[in-house]
Structures are given as C-alpha cells and as structure tokens.
Amino acid sequence: MQRVNMIMAESPGLITICLLGYLLSAECTVFLDHENANKILNRPKRYNSGKLEEFVQGNLERECMEEKCSFEEAREVFENTERTTEFWKQYVDGDQCESNPCLNGGSCKDDINSYECWCPFGFEGKNCELDVTCNIKNGRCEQFCKNSADNKVVCSCTEGYRLAENQKSCEPAVPFPCGRVSVSQTSKLTRAETVFPDVDYVNSTEAETILDNITQSTQSFNDFTRVVGGEDAKPGQFPWQVVLNGKVDAFCGGSIVNEKWIVTAAHCVETGVKITVVAGEHNIEETEHTEQKRNVIRIIPHHNYNAAINKYNHDIALLELDEPLVLNSYVTPICIADKEYTNIFLKFGSGYVSGWGRVFHKGRSALVLQYLRVPLVDRATCLRSTKFTIYNNMFCAGFHEGGRDSCQGDSGGPHVTEVEGTSFLTGIISWGEECAMKGKYGIYTKVSRYVNWIKEKTKLT
C-alpha cells in the first residue's frame, strides 16, 4: 500500500490518463441519441435557420407576430419608411378606419389613436360632414345658397324668414311668412316636400332668348283662358290664391305678392273693366268669414305684352289694390325667389296649380277651390304637342294621358313649387288646347323671366 501511494504521488498524470480511459469505455446513459432527441424537440425550422439574422431580410411573422416588435424591426421587413409607417399605425392600436367614419364618399386613412378623412370636392370637416359648395344638395341650405369668396357655403332665406341657429334652416321672422300653410287642420295635408338634388348652379339658368321682337298675326285659340281631375282644397291650404270678379264672377285667378299687390295673367284683364279681388276665398257660393274683398285701382301688364300681336306672350300683369290686405292664416303671400332659384325650383319637376275653373272641358265651374299636382314636361315634348308657338318664356306641365289639367277660369292662378315646406311661385296658368285632352298640356308663363320686374313694381313704400 505504501508503494502504491508513492507511485500516485510521483505520477499524477498517469492516474488522470487511467481515469479518462475508464470513462470513455463506459456506456453513456444520461444523453439520448440524435434521433430520439429530435422526437422530443420537434420544432419547425425557421426561415433563416442556421444563418445569422443580421444578414437576412426581415420576416413579418418572425419579427412582429411571434413577439412584439419595434418600429426598427418592422422597418427591416418593409425596407421602406412609408410602408412601415402605414403598417405601424394599425399594428400599434388597430384600424381606426374600420367603422368607416368618413361621410359623403370620403376616404379614410388610419393613424395612431386617430384617423384622417380625405374629402371629395365640396366637403370638409373631420368626417367630411361639412358642405362647402352650393353645387351639392344646395349646400344643405333649406332655401338659398351662395358661395363666399373663400368658396364656403353661405345660406340665406327669402323675405319674412331668418336663418336658424344651425345656419342652414329657415324659420319665420314674421307672423305670416310667405308660402307657408298655417291653418292647423290643413298642415297635415301639406304636399310632399321637395329635397334639393345635386345641381350645376353655374349652368342652372337656361341660355334662352326671349323672342321679344317676333311679330306674329293673332292666333285663334280655343278655350285658351284655361282644375280638371283635381281635388277639393281645404280652407287655408292655398292662402296665396285669390279669385278675380268682373263682368262675371271667378273669371280668373291670381296670387298675393304682398298686402297691396296681386300677380295674374295679362290676358285676364281689360282696361276700363272694374275688377274686384277676393282673398281668403274657399267656396265661392258661401260666406265663410275668411274672405277679404278689395278693388283694383291700377293694372300693370308687362311692358312687352301686346294682345294685338299675341294674347299669351309675356302673359303676366300686376294688380294694385285700393287697401292693403290683412295677412292671416287664410290670406298669405306666395314666396318669389330670384331668377336663378325660381328656375331651379321649376326644374324640380312638379308643381301645384289651383283655381275655381271648370271641372271638365266646357263644363261647370268649381264651387270649392280645386288643386292638382302636375309634372313638368320637357321642352321637346311640349313643342311636338301643339302647332302653336311655345315661346321661351312659357313652359308645359300636365299629363300625356289627359284627364287632369287646369281649365277655363283658372287662368292667372299660381303654379307653385314647394321647397322644404315653403311654396314659391314658378308659373302662372296661361293657356292650353281644350282641357285635359290626351297628348295636350297646360301652358304656363315662366315666372323666372319676370321676377325682377315683379319685385321692382310691387315694392311697398
């Protein structure tokens, strides 16, 4: 034993070699072989497995989906700052455009905790909710729209109204504003409101030439003092309507412009014939205590009207009353817009006519005020429907199939267009061939041609 100890002390290297040989010859039971080890760690190889990531292109799944990435790591994937920024906006807080917040056709661009709407022409605001041009839906104005110097929408209202708090709607500024039905039992019968379409306001006024200088022999019209197929109006439903009495009662109609003036057809009036105007009328054979009678003290036909040349060209006249009318729910003026808007309103496509005229061709006159909704007829169809001249200051309205029309005794009465609950004068009943005849239409004086003249002559002093 002493000898062994001496050998170990003198030859430590020998001992180490012996131990190493023993270990190498022993069977290893701690580690699995290569094949079995792979069965336990069965993990798919990654895209760049075996390579240094710093030297390969980034992978979106590896960089940002398996674990949260930084902007720089995302930049490695896209290799483009702009594309990385677009991805980053949604990656950080989701897609803010998912709810489609942009209105009126706006395009949404996502941002971090926010979004941006790219608005089409005519709109602005956070969600493109603000109209900035009158060309689109009248700028959301209830009545009139004008573009300011910086191309912003400025709404306005006709006389007797003021802008509401929203700067879009119009509200009454006087007790009985024009064009409004205020009798409670008839307010439910107000005709369907007309909503502004998209309009090209630059070209809204037709490029028409008034044929002022045409000389033409007097034409022989049949029954051209021209509501057939209409309905009984309720008291106060058309408070701007008046009836004219002269040699015979209810020979023509008219509309209240203001307390002192009536507008009617020029062919209705004769110099030297006494005319009485009755406002607030409903049943011409009954006294309903809503009527107001006034005498006409002055007749002003349009300066281009000449019955000797043509009885229905420039067929418009103004009547001055001896005493002002007292405005109330049964006696209310009709609204008159400017030339541009009167023309736009007419193009809405349908209007209402009213009167006490004959209820059928050569038949009896109506006792109760009649009204009828009539569609506008395109000019080409209008011209083809008659052998008589249709001037540019006239328009056609009615039904091709016949059966409904204005008729004798309705002449001078109103053709009105309702705009968001307020009625505007767009025409004056003038003439036609018979009444409600198939293929024939009622012919009306186009008020847009005469609004400046009306307003100039009827100013209240």
Score class of each variant (00 low, 15 high):
P12W: 06
P12D: 06
L14H: 03
T16Q: 09
C18V: 11
Y22W: 14
Y22R: 03
L23K: 02
L24P: 02
F31L: 15
L32F: 07
H34Q: 09
N36C: 04
A37Y: 10
L41M: 09
N42W: 06
R46L: 10
S49D: 15
G50V: 07
E54V: 04
E54Q: 10
F55M: 15
Q57R: 11
Q57I: 11
G58N: 15
N59P: 06
M65L: 09
E66H: 05
C69L: 04
S70G: 15
S70Q: 14
F71N: 15
E72C: 03
E82A: 13
T84P: 14
E86F: 04
K89P: 15
Q90T: 08
V92N: 08
G94K: 11
C97F: 00
E98Q: 11
N100S: 12
P101R: 03
C102V: 00
K109L: 05
N113I: 06
S114P: 03
Y115A: 01
W118R: 01
P120G: 05
D131A: 04
C134E: 03
N135C: 03
K137P: 06
N138Q: 05
F144T: 01
S148P: 07
A149R: 11
C155H: 01
C157E: 01
E165H: 12
N166D: 05
P175V: 07
P177F: 01
V183G: 11
S184V: 12
Q185D: 14
Q185M: 08
T190R: 09
A192I: 08
T194C: 05
P197R: 08
D198F: 08
V199H: 13
N203Q: 07
T209A: 11
I210N: 05
I214M: 08
F221K: 13
D232I: 13
Q241N: 08
L244S: 01
V248R: 13
G254Q: 00
S255P: 00
S255L: 04
E259R: 06
V263R: 00
T264G: 02
H267Y: 02
V273C: 06
V273W: 13
K274H: 12
V278Y: 05
E285M: 08
E285S: 13
E286Q: 12
E288M: 06
H289G: 13
R294W: 01
N295I: 06
N295Y: 07
V296K: 01
V296R: 01
I297D: 03
Y305G: 02
A307W: 07
A308K: 08
H314W: 07
P324N: 04
Y330A: 07
V331F: 01
I334D: 00
C335H: 01
Y341P: 04
T342M: 03
T342D: 03
I344A: 13
F345V: 04
Y352S: 11
V353T: 09
V353Y: 04
G355N: 07
G355T: 07
W356M: 08
W356N: 03
W356V: 07
R358P: 08
G363V: 06
V368K: 15
Q370K: 09
Y371L: 10
L372W: 15
L376C: 02
V377M: 06
A380R: 07
C382W: 02
F388K: 14
T389I: 12
G409A: 13
E420D: 14
G421A: 06
G427N: 01
E433S: 15
E434F: 12
K438G: 14
K438M: 07
G439W: 03
Y450H: 03
I454G: 00
L460Y: 14
